[in-house]
Computed example of a mutant assay.
Amino acid sequence: MLQVIGVGFGRTGTLSLRTALERLEFGPCHHMAALFEDPAQIGLWREVAETGTPDWDRVYDGYRATVDWPGAAYWRDLTRHYPDAKVILTVRDPECWYQSARATIFQSHNADFDGAPPEVAAMRDVARRIVWEGVLGGRIDEDHAIRTFNEHNEAVRREIGAGRLLKFEAAHGWEPLCAFLDVPVPDEPYPRSNDRAAFAATLKERLGNTAAPS
């Protein structure tokens, strides 16, 4: 059963938050990367995209937390289905978010998947349905993407009660996160994961060293 629901868009420090939550024993934590790590997840999320009436307990069987897409696309459903779960909205400056997304996840949407393992192409199809067509409405131009980003964050802040919601930036470090989750602060730096270079290297590896965006 989910205890923590991350509702921020990808490229707002979600992979670092995943690492942090698992360090704080709120793991396993779901993330888009889980679709690469466990191909069975692809079928579950394809069903979510196709039916619109998912069995969330089945989708998240074995998980204690979720961050990033695809889960963030269904934040209203998830926060209703798991009413006791705490909610974390990862945020960053909208312009910085767009530049980071354009250089990474938006590029991956246009990468050459010829020769990639079949599960990678299947994962991209799920992402296309849920993120590109669903969340972003098929558009990744700057004005539209930033407006969608801002409207999403405003809706979360408006609809989730203040006592249940943490607005969080990776630069804030452990203290506000641990206070929100009522756990001790680890004696180690807050995780820093998945910068642009790391994202490009990971994508190239997953594409089977076929062409990937630089």
Rank of each mutant, 00 (worst) to 15 (best):
E22W: 05
P83Y: 09
C29G: 07
A85C: 06
S214F: 07
G115R: 11
L165R: 00
L89H: 02
T66H: 10
L166F: 03
T19K: 13
D93E: 13
R164D: 11
D55M: 08
P213G: 14
P118T: 01
Q107C: 13
H31F: 00
D93F: 08
A73G: 11
L15N: 12
L207I: 07
E22S: 07
M1I: 11
N194M: 15
D195P: 02
E47D: 14
L78M: 06
C96G: 15
I88T: 07
N150H: 10
G27E: 08
E188A: 12
A127F: 15
H30I: 01
C96D: 15
V126P: 03
V59F: 04
G6H: 06
V67H: 06
F168C: 02
T66E: 14
S16R: 01
L17Y: 06
E47N: 13
W45N: 00
F180I: 03
D182Q: 14
S100A: 05
A20G: 05
I130F: 00
T79E: 03
H31Q: 00
V59W: 04
Y190Q: 00
N194R: 13
P118I: 01
H31T: 00
W45R: 07
K167I: 15
D125T: 10
I88E: 04
A116E: 04
A170E: 10
P70F: 10
W56I: 08
R158F: 06
R18C: 02
W45S: 03
D84Q: 12
P28K: 05
Y190C: 00
E151P: 05
E25R: 15
W45P: 03
G115Y: 10
V4W: 04
R102H: 13
E205S: 15
A121G: 12
P118K: 01
C29I: 06
L177M: 03
